[in-house]
Design a protein around this nucleic acid. Sequence first.
DNA 1: ATACATTAGTTACGAAAAGTAATCTAATGA
DNA 2: TCATTAGATTACTTTTCGTAACTAATGTAT
Lengths: 110, 110
Amino acid sequence: MDQLCPRFEKAMVLLSTRWVGLILFELLKGAKRFSEMEADLPISGRLLSDRLKLLEKEGIVERNIYSEFPVRIEYTLSEKGKALEPVIKDIQRWAEEYVSADDAADNEVK
Amino acid sequence: MDQLCPRFEKAMVLLSTRWVGLILFELLKGAKRFSEMEADLPISGRLLSDRLKLLEKEGIVERNIYSEFPVRIEYTLSEKGKALEPVIKDIQRWAEEYVSADDAADNEVK
DNA sequence: ATACATTAGTTACGAAAAGTAATCTAATGA
DNA sequence: TCATTAGATTACTTTTCGTAACTAATGTAT
């Protein structure tokens, strides 16, 4: 039995947190507002708020406030966040090659 | 608001399932028995059992029974499972570069 | 001044899911 | 009968989730 690298384990736990992957995917496309993400992702406002706070705390997401009318708040990826792009891209490639349309349907139907 | 690709969403949900990443990491090192994984990973037997069943159902993990004394059961990655290696490697690289030792400590201390 | 609209959350709370440890089952050979 | 491996089951606690209502800041209309 060998030890897990603590940094790896930490990364894994973070990235395994529900919705974190999808939020990263969303932000890789560019800056997003709270309400845009809420509309795009199958996630409630409460959870989205929780996750954004978590990702901000971890230095992965940045929160920018623009004092316009009405107030506009944009979320973007930090350098640390952008560095996760290869992970997301690999998952996309894998999904295209190995996840069948039928498998994917399981998610919807419930 | 654009639609999420169902295959990608399915892959993301699967890979975001708690412990799945660590189990894949473990199996990328080679065939493992139930008790080895239980010892290596911070996860109870019940959950390990659940996750292995899930991964087997998804065609990612294979379960091989050897009728020896005592019975030996080994888990290995299928081709579909091995194809996830780049994802895990990317996460390792990212963790080494961006997760500080202090951050990693958060995981342990609780 | 008062009331309303807009964006971005927060809070409260019950329901559901996930977590654990400990104990039980089953197959097989010594 | 006991030991070994693998896992299922039970009983229980903890965490997480989703809905819906509420807050806060700011500008606009009356």
